[in-house]
Write a protein that binds this DNA or RNA. Sequence first.
RNA 1: GUGCCCGUAGCUCAAUUGGAUAGAGCGCUGCCCUCCGAAGGCAGAGGUUGCAGGUUCGACUCCUGCCGGGCACGCCA
Length: 620
Amino acid sequence: MSALEDPSLVLRQRFEAAIAAAFPQLPGPVDPVITASRQPQFGDFQSNAAMALAKQLGLKPRDVAAAIVAKLDLAGIAEPLTEKSIAGPGFINISLRGDALAAGVTALDAAGTADDLGVARTSSPQTVVVDLCGVNLAKQMHVGHLRSTVIPDAIARAFERLGHKVIRQSHVGDWGLPIAMVTGKLKGELDAGRVTPATLTLDALEQLYRAAQAECERDLKGLEAVRRYGLGPKLEAEVQAQVDTATEAFNRAREVLLKLQSHDPDTVAVWKLIYDITMRACLETCSRLHANITADHTAGESSYAEELGGVVKDLLDRGVAAIDQGAVVVRVQGLEVPCLVRKSDGGYLYATTDLAAIRRRVQKFGASRVIYGVDIRQSLHFQQVFGAAIKAGYADVPGDGVARLEHAAFGTVLGADGKPFKTRSGENVKLADLLDEAVQRARKVVDDRSASLAEADRARIAEAVGIAAIKYMDLSTERSKDYVFDFDRMLAFEGNTGPYLLYALVRTRSIFRKAAEEGRDGGWRGAVISITEPAEKSLALALLRYGKVVESVAETLEPHRLCQYLIELSTAFSAFFDQCKVIWAPDDATRRSRLRLCDITGRVLADGLKTLGIPTVERM
RNA sequence: GUGCCCGUAGCUCAAUUGGAUAGAGCGCUGCCCUCCGAAGGCAGAGGUUGCAGGUUCGACUCCUGCCGGGCACGCCA
């Protein structure tokens, strides 16, 4: 962002000069700490430097502020300062001139960089790997996947918007004993002719998955109890029989896993069937969610299977890992529990796969940041894995320090009762069902309020509104917190919701349709922008903040900042729309200026929504 | 037992990474459509930021100790 587009940069320069002139004894340039003022009564921007400087110089803060003000040249950018400009302990309040704001907004829309809308393309693009979605074979996506899909996708979009190279990685749970169980189970069903590949659904697979797991579940505790309390030979025999069958099933699953690992064609074919059915359904849900997740982004656990032995050997060879009670562990400084990378029976664990993934992502893909959008309950796991990866040197970027490994953790989706969101029968709620219901509810409202629109339009609008409502709700709160899932609130169409943002966007568009009807839509492209009314000023200030907000999302991995911003922009626009006539402005120049403001606002809103991954509509 | 996360208006959430009188929405009380979309705007009431200390010119924010809630803790993923 150039100084022209960002008044705070100009202020920063002017203040730096003033501070240097007022206190030549200071060694280097001092950060003037320019921030946007929170309340209009304190102006538009403020400098908070005087307090810290006073401490350093041994002077009174207000005297320091006065000395800075005496040397300050704000010509062409801000209103002249008065005695009241120095307030409180030593804040220096600045009100921008309307023409400076107008110049800033005009620069946002400058030819050549108009699509940037004040978001600076990075001069040093990084490769950023974003781990997201994380579905499991033979399982539907459920509520938890809403967050693991939507949040990291929004983070990825922010990096892309800034010009970084993003590699999305969906770490699909497609390997290991549980998958072998269901593969064996399905093979049995297919061989017996009870199911056919052509009619097999993901729902059916999920049932087989549960059945297979249940079959392998050995009631060892029950057996012990029966023996300890001497509950009789008959009961003992029953429990023993259960354990025996379960053990058989368990052993069969291990054999299936071995076959998978040795690429036995028949077994792999069944596995592939499960894989295809699961991925088709899940990628369809991702697509419906407007998440940029496709088959190209899939990097399942199976893709690391051949590397795990090498990883453990490498760790042992270099003394990074040690053998402990027959298992292989990596001890990480500061953590009680070591990171377990190989079981005593020789099997690998998910930490092993994650280590292989970090190695690939940093060493092969060249990532300088690896971001995991995963449930907060896995915090300890990631501390262990990150610590182990760093200890092993897997996070070393060739010739460039250590990659940032970050867990963008999110909290749980809760039901109205404050407990994790489940169906009445205690099952996980299918994500697809959730989306259906949101769209269905949105449809009712759209039918009600926009009855005049064509059926097909209403269907399309309801789809966008429903998805926007769900995604906005998920993105708009601080991600590490739990939140309560509430259809009524997210679809209230009022206040802090996705639909409100769509509504604001629609109004920025509809004004042009109306203006065209009135024959008053000419001449606004490239028109001179003038900022005079308070509502115009607020709108301009909001527009100029956009670039910084996108940057902060990438830095903090917190999309809710962009949500918050878009609501503030929408509110500023609504006030402007209410208080400043556009089509019926007092004169042609003002009309053109305001039309152009509507256009820029609409484009920032659309761009912000796109960066969040929220679908938009032209009318509703 | 150890560690991590959370605690802000009646409810759901913010607070520009330490800045001023803690802000929005819902709900509540009033206004504002013969005029660009009222899914909107304006105004009002509503707070000891869980409690107690500490650091600082300044603390919702950082530190310590409590209280309350949640989660996680080597051979599952």
